[in-house]
C-alpha cells in the first residue's frame, strides 16, 4: 500500500525542512565569524585582582584578537585564576617568557588580556599551562613612578618666586622705577640746553654751520648726478645693445629647443600611431565577432535587416544646360 500525503502535509514538511536549512545556514555563517569551528588551546593565568575581566573578555597577542576569556575563578590562595582559550595556530607563540597583562582601553570598551609573545628560545607552554602575568598598575603606583608630588612642589616654588619679582617691580623706589626716574632727569637736562650734549643740540651757530655744509654737499651731489646721468645714458645704449644680442640668440635657441622637443614628441607619437591603430583594429574585430555571435541568436536573426546589396549607378543627365 502506498502512503499518501495531502498537499497541506507536503507543504508543512517542506516548510519545516526549509526552516531547518535556513537555521543550519545561519549557524554556519555565525559560527564561522565567531571562530566556533576553529581549534582552540586552553591556558590559565593568575592575577592579584579580577580587573573587571569576565567570561568573553578578549585575549590579544600584540594587540590582535587571538581568543577570549572562558572563565574567571577565585582560588583558595585569594588570587584570581583566569581560563583563556587561544586559537591553536597562535599557541606556538605563547612561551615560558611570555607575559600576560590586563589592559584598559583608552576611551571606551572593556578590559582585555594582552599577551606579549615569548622569545623563540623559550619553551612553549603546554595546553592548560599557566601563562606568567604582570599585574596592572594602580593610579597611586603611576604617581610614585613619575614623582608627581615632587614635581608639583617645584611648581609651587616657581610661582612664589614670580610673585616676589612682581612685587619688586611695583615698588616706586625699587630697581625698575628708580632707573626710570634717572632717565627722566637726564633727558630734562638735554632739553634745557645744559651740559655738553644739551649745548650741542640747542646751539643755533652749530646748526647754521651744518646747514651751509649740507647745501654745499647738495650742489656737489647735483653736479655729480648730472654727469652720472650722461654717463648712464651712454652706458644704457651700450648695455641695451650688448643685452639684446645674447637675448635674441637665447630666444632663437629657445625656439629651436622647443621645435626639437615638438619634433621628438611627434616622432614618438608617429611610432605609437600604428600600434594604437592596430589595437583599435583588434578591438573592433573583437566587437565584430561578438556582434556576429549575437546575430546568430535565433531570436535576433529573423529581425535583422537584410544585408546591403550592391547596385550599379548610371549617370543621368539632369537639367541639360551643360
Amino acid at each position: 500500500m502506498r502512503l499518501q500525503y495531502s498537499t497541506m502535509e507536503r507543504m508543512t514538511g517542506a516548510f519545516i525542512l526549509l526552516t531547518l536549512i535556513v537555521f543550519l545556514f545561519t549557524v554556519a555563517v555565525v559560527g564561522r565569524g565567531k571562530n566556533w569551528f576553529r581549534k582552540h588551546v586552553v591556558y590559565y593565568t593568575a592575577f592579584e585582582e579580577g580587573y573587571n575581566l569576565v567570561s568573553g573578555s578578549r585575549v590579544k597577542l600584540l594587540g590582535t584578537d587571538i581568543g577570549s576569556v572562558t572563565d574567571v575563578l577565585l582560588t583558595t590562595g585569594n588570587k584570581v585564576k583566569v581560563q583563556v582559550k587561544v586559537l591553536a595556530e597562535y599557541a606556538s607563540r605563547i612561551r615560558a617568557n611570555s607575559v600576560a597583562t590586563v589592559e584598559s582601553p583608552t576611551v571606551i570598551g572593556s578590559e582585555y588580556i594582552n599577551i606579549r609573545p615569548g622569545t623563540s628560545k623559550a619553551a612553549v607552554i603546554p595546553p592548560e599551562g599557566m601563562i606568567p602575568t604582570k599585574e596592572k598598575k594602580k593610579f597611586t603606583e603611576y604617581l610614585e613612578q613619575y614623582e608627581i608630588g615632587a614635581k608639583l612642589e617645584n611648581i609651587g616654588k616657581i610661582l612664589e618666586d614670580l610673585a616676589l619679582i612682581t612685587d619688586q617691580l611695583k615698588d616706586p623706589k625699587g630697581p625698575f622705577f628708580g632707573t626710570f626716574s634717572n632717565l627722566q632727569q637726564i633727558t630734562g637736562t638735554v632739553e634745557a640746553g645744559e651740559g655738553s650734549l644739551g649745548r650741542l643740540i640747542k646751539s643755533d651757530e652749530l646748526y647754521e654751520h651744518m646747514d651751509t655744509f649740507v647745501a654745499t654737499l647738495q650742489e656737489t651731489a647735483d653736479y655729480l648726478v648730472r654727469a652720472g646721468v650722461n654717463i648712464e645714458k651712454g652706458s644704457e645704449h651700450l648695455e641695451k645693445a650688448t643685452r639684446e644680442g645674447p637675448e635674441m640668440v637665447d630666444k632663437t635657441q629657445e625656439l629651436l629647443d622647443r621645435l626639437l622637443k615638438v619634433q621628438v614628441i611627434l616622432e614618438k607619437v608617429m611610432t605609437e600611431v600604428p600600434e594604437i591603430s592596430a589595437q583599435a583594429r583588434e578591438g573592433m574585430q573583437e566587437v565584430n565577432r561578438i556582434l556576429d555571435s549575437v546575430k546568430e541568436n535565433f531570436l535576433i536573426r529573423p529581425n535583422l535587416p537584410p544585408p546591403p546589396d550592391s547596385e550599379t549607378h548610371g549617370l543621368e543627365i539632369r537639367g541639360g544646360q551643360n
Binding site: 544585408p307 546591403p308 546589396d309 550592391s310 547596385e311 549607378h313
Partner: peptide, 12 residues
C-alpha cells in the same frame, strides 16, 4: 564577399 557588398552599398 559580404565585405565587398557592404563597401559597394556604402558607396551607393
Amino acid at each position: 564577399l559580404t565585405e565587398v557588398k557592404r563597401l559597394a552599398a556604402e558607396g551607393s
